[in-house]
Structures are given as structure tokens and as C-alpha cells.
């Protein structure tokens, strides 16, 4: 420490001339392959810009001579998947819906495809969880206006309900009783109908007489409805339009008019069958056994 240190004989390296607190920065040369790698990336970038969409312009990026685009790429993949599923779709279109559940592979395909169809086309009214809303049937429960077997559901999806677009649409109309019955009678009927799920005899008492005269032709003497005309069961715990006196009064006074569009113009037969299988599998689907 008494004498200045001797320099060693390692190669002298130029410094950048910068000095921080006496620490200087050596100016060692970079390896040449590094330089060529840099040139390589530049060449790659130029080629890329020519081949692929790159420069942003006013109305979108330059196209690139390969004509490649992300949308085109997605479209290609969709077509690939479509092509790979063609057999499954054909098989779904041909299979009798009543025995669909005997083919596990097909039912799985139908359930998944149907879920996608449902989310896109059905959830706007029936809800993403298929729980419906007031006036829009809950598809999870075991109550079906027009039948709950896969064929019934497929028919409803195909042709819709009470629409003017499809001559085969399921059709029925409950009249607006404000023009038929006086208000007092309607009030009596409302009380009577609201008591039906509790076990009241549909034909008992004053309300029963009114029920017999005005309602049984569609809802039946037992009040359990008629699926051939979409007349709901009035004795169960499910109320499509709500069970409060106001809600029931409103329906009887004005008459409901729930509409569902036909989907055969927008969905393929395979999609209709898939969504029918999906809805059937939501928890309320009925198997082809005699209903009471």
C-alpha cells in the first residue's frame, strides 16, 4: 500500500470516457455474431412487414402479400372444426330424439353444442341460467306448457309459439275476460285460482262454478291444464306470470300472449336438436313415459 500498484500485462481496454466516482466504463467490443443477429432481426422485420399485415393506415393496417389476417385465421379454424363435426351433426339430425340418450357420445356433443346455441339465441328471454323471468318460462323446472320430451321441445324451438311467421307455430289464445265477466266475478275467480295449489277442489263453491263455465274447456275440470293447447296446470306451484292477486287479475282481465319466434329459419336442424337436448337436460326434461 505504500507504492502505487504496478500494472499487469492484461490487454488494455479503451474506456468510454465516462467516470462515476472514479469508476470508469470499459468499452469492450461486442461479439460480431451479436451484430449479425441484430442484422438478422432487421431482415426478419422487413420480410415480415412485406408478408404480413403491419403498418397502421387510416382504414386498417396494410394487408401484406400473404393476405393473412387474424379474422381469416379464426374463420379457417372455425371451418376446420365445422368440417370435423360434420359427421356428428349428420348423426344428430338423423337420430330419433326419443332414443338420443342411448348414445353417450352424441348426447355429450348435443349438450355442448346446445349450450352454445342457447347462450347465443335463447338467453335473451330465458336468461343465461335458463331460469326465465315473469312471462318467460323457467326451463329448469318440471312444468311444461307444450310438453317436456325432447321431441316436444324441438318442435317448440323449430316453429315457435303464437308467432305469425310460421304456420306450424304452436298456437292458442286465452281470451281477455274483462269483456266476458264482470269485475266481481273476476275477483272471485282470482281468489279461487290462487287457492288451487293448496288443494281446493277446482269445481267447488262460487269460484268453482265460474271456473267450470269459463276455464275448464282449456284448463280441464281438474285444473291441470292441457298441453295440446298450451294451457298451464293451475294446481301446481309454478306461476309463469306471478302468483300475487294483482298479477293473476291482470292475466285473467287482459289475457296472456307470450310469443316465441320460430328458429327453423335461423338455426340448422342439428342446432335445433342440440338445443332441445340441452334444454331437456337442464333438470326438468321428461322421459317418454305416460304423463298423468
Amino acid at each position: 500500500m505504500t507504492k502505487p500498484p504496478k500494472t499487469d500485462d492484461t490487454p488494455k481496454v479503451e474506456t468510454t470516457g465516462h467516470s462515476w466516482d472514479g469508476i470508469e466504463e470499459l468499452n469492450n467490443p461486442l461479439p460480431r455474431w451479436w451484430l449479425w443477429t441484430l442484422y438478422g432481426t432487421i431482415v426478419f422485420a422487413v420480410v415480415y412487414v412485406i408478408l404480413y399485415p403491419a403498418w397502421p393506415m387510416v382504414n386498417g393496417a396494410t394487408k401484406g402479400v400473404l393476405g393473412w389476417s387474424t379474422r381469416g385465421d379464426v374463420q379457417m379454424h372455425i371451418e376446420e372444426v365445422d368440417a370435423s363435426q360434420a359427421d356428428m351433426r349428420a348423426s344428430l339430425t338423423e337420430t330419433d330424439l326419443g332414443v338420443l340418450d342411448r348414445n353417450p357420445e352424441l348426447i355429450e356433443f348435443a349438450m355442448n353444442a346446445g349450450a352454445a346455441v342457447f347462450r347465443t339465441n335463447c338467453s335473451q328471454c330465458h336468461g343465461s341460467g335458463a331460469a326465465g323471468a315473469v312471462g318467460y318460462p323457467n326451463l329448469l323446472d318440471d312444468d311444461w306448457l307444450w310438453g317436456g320430451m325432447v321431441e316436444d321441445i324441438a318442435y317448440t324451438v323449430r316453429h315457435g309459439i303464437r308467432n305469425e311467421d310460421d304456420p306450424d307455430a304452436r298456437f292458442s289464445q286465452m281470451p281477455a275476460f274483462s269483456e266476458i265477466l264482470p269485475k266481481e266475478d273476476i275477483a272471485t275467480l282470482v281468489d279461487h285460482i290462487r287457492s288451487l295449489p293448496g288443494g281446493t277442489d277446482p269445481l267447488a263453491g262460487a269460484g268453482g262454478q265460474l271456473f267450470l263455465d269459463n276455464c275448464t274447456s282449456c284448463h280441464g275440470d281438474d285444473g291441470r291444464g292441457d298441453r295440446t293447447q298450451g294451457a298451464p296446470n293451475l294446481t301446481d306451484a309454478i306461476w309463469l306470470y306471478g302468483d300475487s292477486p294483482e298479477q293473476v287479475t291482470r292475466i285473467i282481465t287482459r289475457g296472456p300472449y307470450g310469443v316465441m319466434p320460430p328458429w327453423n329459419t335461423r338455426l340448422s336442424e342439428a342446432e335445433i336438436r342440440a338445443v332441445a337436448a340441452y334444454v331437456h337436460g337442464l333438470g326438468g326434461g321428461e322421459m317418454p313415459t305416460p304423463q298423468d
Binding site: S128, A131, N233, I238
Partner: peptide
Amino acid sequence: PVRNPTFVTLSDGSVRNA
């Protein structure tokens, strides 16, 4: 538990969760 919806009322008044 399926939360959409949280429960379903069945026609006999029973309550079902999925």
C-alpha cells in the same frame, strides 16, 4: 353450487338446488 338461479321451485312446491 349453481348460482344462476340459486334455486328452482318445482311444480309440487319443492325446492331444488343444482
